[in-house]
């Protein structure tokens, strides 16, 4: 039995269940006159059935066999993933207030700093060049409206 399939199977089971219940708040209609809730309800039920196939299929296949965790995090890599996601989300939060120049500069510095030990010279150089490049290509040449923020550029 694959441990990871049990986790994802359970996840989809609850997604299907939630979707089915939520769909009932809309008019479902009948097959020859389906309403807005008809297909979502059908999809919710299909998801429940499929997740059960995934869950039960796993159980039947290999009774008593060792659990294989194919999704086990290797080393500290997952910390980098969590860090990167958080940095991105926070950057999105401040983007419109602070403006694109500062956000992108800080974003690149933080992302590079978190990835691996690198020299500050390299990090700052990349961040400055990339921000400048974005300014030239997207703002000057392509005239994309980006939030100017504090710098006003």
């Amino acid at each position: 039995m694959k441990y990871s399939d049990t986790i994802s199977g359970l996840f989809w089971f609850f997604v299907g269940l939630g979707l089915s219940i939520w769909s009932l708040t809309y008019e479902t209609g009948r097959l020859t006159q389906p309403g807005p809730g008809y297909l979502p309800l059908a999809l919710g039920i299909i998801l429940i059935v499929l997740s059960l196939i995934l869950l039960l299929g796993q159980r039947k296949r290999a009774p008593g066999k060792k659990q294989i965790v194919s999704s086990s995090p290797r080393g500290s890599g997952w910390k980098k993933v969590v860090y990167t996601v958080l940095v991105l989300a926070v950057a999105a939060f401040f983007f419109e207030k602070v403006g694109y120049l500062i956000t992108f500069f800080v974003l690149i510095v933080l992302l590079m700093k978190g990835a691996e030990a690198q020299s500050w010279k390299r990090i700052l150089l990349t961040a400055v060049l990339a921000t400048l490049g974005i300014y030239i290509v997207f703002v000057l040449l392509l005239q994309q409206p980006l939030p100017r923020g504090y710098l006003g550029v």
């Binding site: 990167t84 991105l88 694109y100 992108f104 974003l107 590079m112 990339a130 974005i134």
Partner: peptide, 12 residues
Amino acid sequence: ILFPLILVFCFL
């Protein structure tokens, strides 16, 4: 160097 740039481009 590449991946922060990819992420920033997606963001943009």
